[in-house]
Nucleic acid binder design. Structure first.
Length: 425
RNA sequence: GGAGAGGUGGCUGAGUGGUCGAAAGCGCCGGUUUGCUAAACCGGUGUACGGGUCACACCGUACCAUGGGUUCAAAUCCCAUCCUCUCCGCCA
């Protein structure tokens, strides 16, 4: 979330930003509520002060009569204070509700536009899309022919959008994980395997909203836990409510988790096969940085994502995400779209990874702060997240790009040592 | 799952109703002393919000796991929840 003081002092800028980001957040209402809250806070403080003063006098009262009179006065003051405090709490609740709908500010260079049509292609990968001298199949057909993916069984046991990976697809998934993790460890990331569930508070902190009408999140009944939609949630929560020393940054972590998404409202969108599923595995990168490090870290994350797909020998393009398509927490976001020969009519790019600089938007709610040497007070860290490999979509890209005329799949060079074979089928 | 113990500042750990934002020690920062380092000694050292200042200083309020309650007054008493530790059971 944004800083309350910042919103009040820069209401015009925040409004303008909301317009660019398709956000209907009511800034005027926020400012009005916030002014009321400040006033009420002062009132509560003042009443508290008087009540405290009175309490101290009771200890020093000389006569029982004086004592009783002071007690009565104290009781009245506390009652007033409680009443004012209740109003204050109510105001804070209202403010929070509005505040959390206000998106992050946007990078000045992020393309301005209402949706993904306005995304700006900024680069292409090293490899060109493959040319086939046969009609390429899509991953669903390939998965079925080679007995790699079983959607029917997934639907039977769990429901639409679930699947079993089988046989060499299992090795492929594990190989992709290993490939990504080894690469990231070589870059100084601390690898983790995170919990797949998180407290709702942590979800909120990272900008995810469980139990809303359009939530993407599965909640666990009778608890304050939800299944995570990405390890970004748990990794972001890792340093929640801590104050770090300035010199620990940047902190680079990565985490493997399962990711669960309800995909509410996604009906009708391109969603055949593994592309849009309710559960997949992902290797996620995450960084905590100082404010002046986050721009460079975003470029670095993007570069790593490119290296991972260049290494796999898969064609892709990178787009700079338009303001209207940024979501809540991101200040700037790059998506990497890999070439998927089985998609659309004769192949299309499909999003496989995404990296965002969330500046202090998540850190503020999560309470991730740092202290500068020789300075009073604290500052909020910046957080960034990026997909190293989303396994479901990476598997689509590998299967479709590496299919051969004889129906087999060649295993990308970099995965062979992890798979122990160079061909599927 | 059962029984017990406990959650206090960066850490260890006192504190059982007002004089407590909280002793003491450690750590950390500054200083004195000193060939250097160490030791010793002196001083300082939480966070947030608001007021105040050019900026400091300073003032107010809140915070001793979390949420309620009792009381004029709660770290301290009561209730609930969460978490940690030990033992037993169970289990991968």
């Amino acid at each position: 979330m944004l800083d309350r003081k910042f919103i009040v002092e820069n209401a015009a800028l925040v409004k303008e930003n909301c317009a660019r980001r398709n956000s209907k957040a009511d800034i005027d209402r926020f400012v009005e509520l916030e002014m009321q809250r400040r006033q009420m806070q002062q009132q509560v403080d003042e009443l508290n002060r008087q009540a405290n003063e009175t309490s101290k006098l009771i200890g020093k009262a000389k006569t029982p009569e004086e004592r009783e009179a002071l007690k009565t006065q104290g009781r009245e003051l506390r009652d007033q204070c409680t009443a004012a405090g209740e109003k204050l709490t109510a105001l804070e609740g209202d403010i929070d509700a509005v505040q959390r709908t206000i998106p992050n500010m946007s990078h000045p260079q992020a393309p301005i536009g209402g949706d993904d049509q306005a995304n700006l292609e900024v680069k292409k990968g090293k490899h060109a899309p493959p040319k086939f001298d046969f009609k390429p199949l899509d991953h669903v057909e390939l998965g079925e022919k080679l007995n790699l993916i079983d959607f029917e069984a997934g639907a039977k046991t769990t429901g639409h959008g679930f699947y079993f990976l089988k046989n060499d697809a299992v090795l492929l998934e594990l190989a992709l994980q290993q490939y990504a993790i080894h690469l990231l460890m070589g870059e100084g990331f601390t690898p983790t395997i995170t919990p797949d569930l998180a407290r709702n508070e942590v979800l909120h902190g990272t900008g995810y909203i469980p139990r809303g009408p359009e939530t993407q999140i599965y909640s666990i009944a009778e608890s304050d836990l939800s299944l995570v939609a990405t390890a970004e949630i748990t990794l972001g929560g890792y340093l929640a409510d801590t104050i770090q020393e300035e010199d620990v940054f940047p902190i680079k972590m990565c985490g493997i988790s399962h990711c669960y998404r309800t995909e509410a409202g996604a009906g009708g969108r391109a969603s055949r096969g593994l592309y849009r599923v309710h559960q997949f595995t992902k290797v996620e990168m995450f960084a905590f940085t100082l404010p002046d490090q986050s721009d460079a870290m975003l470029e670095y994350f993007c570069d790593l994502e490119c290296r991972i797909f260049d290494g796999l020998g898969i064609a892709y393009r990178v787009v700079d995400t338009a303001t209207g398509d940024l979501g809540g927490p991101a200040y700037r976001k790059y998506d990497l779209e890999a070439w998927m020969p089985g998609r659309g009519n004769g192949g299309e790019y499909g999003e496989v990874t995404s990296t965002s600089n969330c500046t202090d938007y998540q850190a503020r709610r999560l309470g991730i702060r740092y202290r500068k040497k020789g300075e009073k007070g604290t500052h909020f860290a910046h957080t960034l997240n990026g997909t190293a490999v989303a396994l479901s979509r990476a598997i689509i890209a590998v299967l479709e790009n590496y299919q051969q005329a004889d129906g087999t799949i060649v295993v990308p060079e970099v995965l062979r040592k992890y798979m122990g074979k160079d061909r599927i089928g």
